[in-house]
Design a protein around this nucleic acid. Structure first.
Lengths: 151, 151
DNA sequence: TTTAACATTTGTAAGATGCAAGTAATTTCA
DNA sequence: TGAAATTACTTGCATCTTACAAATGTTAAA
């Protein structure tokens, strides 16, 4: 049996760097806009969910709600995120990306895809398929695990 | 072709939570000692490398050297890490774990293994083998990739 | 030996974090 | 119905984290 922790540790560290690279370099060709990996995750998650509230995204990311409230304030000031009051419950703010936020998000996405393709270029097609299937398996297993892998 | 970014994003987020859980819960049965995921990574990396300098670990983790210097100061105050001057170059401090640091590190390791086994319990043996092999492939591919996955 | 390079540390200032407490809106149920 | 509880979010505050400059002490190079 291999050192499982070592394997996962190396992998997550690698993806952490990849993540950082993507959101730091994503705009310096065009505009002077840099965001942190945390901000990149927030944009991604807002894009992914359907009309999410502040609460919902904070929970998904495992961030303290007060910290997250301020993170959103920053992103609103940067004109990347928009808050819309919920029509039926005015306590709730629905989050969405502005046009600027959307195009930044797409840009980061492209950067990420390019990086991932670069990584996969070191494998043959069979290996690539196996790896992708494995990650799906892992994600399912984590989703089914009650003990961990969620905040 | 699936959404690669999505797959990797979900996976890394899951392991991020796992990581957090492990270092937060690792000691609250015995002592009142909690460390952050970052501190846990530092301990792990000091353990993994052979007589590492401050510089070396900072570089491995992609942390600014001044920030890392202070992180080490904190861990030294917590009696988890020891600094020993290099016998041939007194500019360099060699890092190592104290006894307390070692036992904490072992504890986190056990916690991590338990969590990972829990995740793998949702798979059969063949799937498990496939996943482990895939992660090895990924790590190799990242190591071979010049464009990313390192600081 | 003077200069350059290196490993590490501190000054400082800006940013992130999270608890406690606040506001405002909605539910609950007596 | 209406006072009390709950919910979604925001602010005050004190504490950590971070990183750029600049400093210290040490070794290597010219």
């Amino acid at each position: 049996m291999d050192n499982l922790r070592e394997l996962f540790y190396i992998m997550t560290r690698g993806f952490g760097f990849l993540d950082k690279q993507c959101c730091l370099s994503s705009f310096d060709c065009c505009q002077d806009l840099e965001i942190s990996p945390i901000q990149s995750h927030i944009l991604y998650e807002i894009n992914r969910q359907h009309q999410p509230s502040i609460q919902k995204i904070a929970e998904t990311l495992g961030t303290d709600i007060t910290t997250f409230s301020r993170q959103i304030q920053t992103l609103v000031k940067m004109d990347l995120v928009k808050k819309t009051p919920h029509p039926e419950d005015r306590r709730i703010s629905i989050l969405s990306l502005t046009e600027k936020g959307k195009s930044l998000s797409i840009r980061i996405d492209q950067e990420m895809k390019a990086y991932l393709n670069e990584v996969f270029s070191h494998m043959n097609d069979f290996e690539k398929e196996t790896v992708i299937r494995s990650i799906k398996l892992l994600n399912e297993a984590m989703a089914n695990s009650k003990r961990c892998c969620s905040p």
